[in-house]
Design a protein around this nucleic acid. Structure first.
Lengths: 207, 207
DNA sequence: GGCCTAAATGGACTATAGTCCGTTTCTGTG
DNA sequence: CACAGAAACGGACTATAGTCCATTTAGGCC
């Protein structure tokens, strides 16, 4: 929602570094990178210490020794900060899906891959429930703007197209992911425990 | 989240009106009722005029000519205000389900009633999308605390128990309602239009 | 009508997300 | 190295949800 994108081509000018002529985004400045790491470390520390809720953005900025403006410029909003903290774990799951062993990775029948995805995603989710909830609900509609969501959605849509030929896979994938929202799973797990919650979404997704 | 409930029995005392001996909640005071109506009218007016987002609670209080404290005491929070405004429309749907003609009302096979419910609910939802979204997302977890949600959930759970004997109906009902969340439907409708969105959730719910 | 208690009131107060903009710091270039 | 412009900085500022409590008011009872 922020982070000057500037992806359009620019006109050639002698005062531009070569990098920009190749369409690459401008390299992050050294102080910016330093501050990004300071913030991530501080946020991680505070969240562990006081729980994800109960830590304000001011507190993160203070702990990181950074101004509020910097914090928001870098991460956009609270969801953005959470998403950044989840980035690495998220990427592990994404890589397992793209190139790991079946049934999560390629090679198994679509229905089995779907089941494996739900299981793996629920594991990921339950492992970071508070953080994911923050990344999804800090601002309205945040869930659907996060890059990761697009990934899960595409993956599910592709598998659905394969598993149920002729279905309207894109909106259906959207709908299938709805019960996997952190806020929903939080309630489900709180009310019925992990096993029944997991089984319910599994059943639903697999039809 | 508020609204002094006091549902426990009290000891008999001569200074208590008869009503309370029967377990009824204390009657709403006249000034309170007047203010409640003033607030609802003001909120309705403002929401129509400026859209549901874009009206602050301060604005509602001011328009109603009422203090902020009064507003919050009466409705708890922003979701509560939205829920109160939806109350009547909601009740119509609930009555149609409980005692209207089939297939929405009793008398049709469970699967057909389920389909009719999804259709009717989507109609209701699309008719008040912004308000419902506000009632569900103004505070985290608000959706699952609203009385109406419990109604839909129970209804779906009962029908599921009938339609798929042996399934774990309660958590499954929860999961089935997830794609009907206002925020989710807002995205779905925005991206694919009403027809495809409706069909996607229909498919999902009906397995 | 007057009294008494519980309920209701309202607006000042707090907490927090997010914005704005004048100032500071990088970094590529000559 | 010094310069210039771009990028980043940080903290004061705004907007808004929600709380608190001293004061006011309703309405049952005599």
């Amino acid at each position: 929602m922020n982070e000057s994108e500037s992806s359009g081509l620019r006109s050639v000018s002698s005062s531009e570094p070569l990098r920009t002529l190749l369409g690459e985004p401008p390299r992050e400045r050294a102080d910016a990178a330093r501050n990004r790491m300071k913030v991530l470390a501080a946020a991680d520390r505070l969240f562990r210490e006081k729980g994800v809720d109960g830590v304000s953005m001011d507190a993160v900025a203070a702990e990181a020794g950074v101004g509020k403006g910097t914090l928001f410029r870098r991460f956009g909003d609270k969801s953005g900060l959470a998403a950044a903290l989840l980035d690495e774990r998220e990427r592990e799951l994404q890589e397992a899906i793209l190139s790991g062993p079946p049934p999560l990775g390629p090679g198994a029948p679509a229905v089995e891959r779907l089941a494996a995805f739900v299981d793996a995603y629920v594991d990921y989710l339950l492992g970071h429930l508070d953080l994911v909830r923050m990344s999804e609900t800090a601002s309205p509609g945040a869930r659907y703007r996060i890059g990761a969501y697009r990934f899960w959605r595409l993956h599910v849509a592709v598998l659905l197209g394969e598993a149920r030929p002729g279905c309207d896979a894109d909106p259906l994938a959207h709908a299938l992911l709805a019960p996997l929202a952190a806020e929903h799973m939080t309630v489900l797990v709180g009310e019925y425990g992990r096993a029944r919650a997991r089984e319910a979404v599994r059943r639903l997704v697999l039809g």
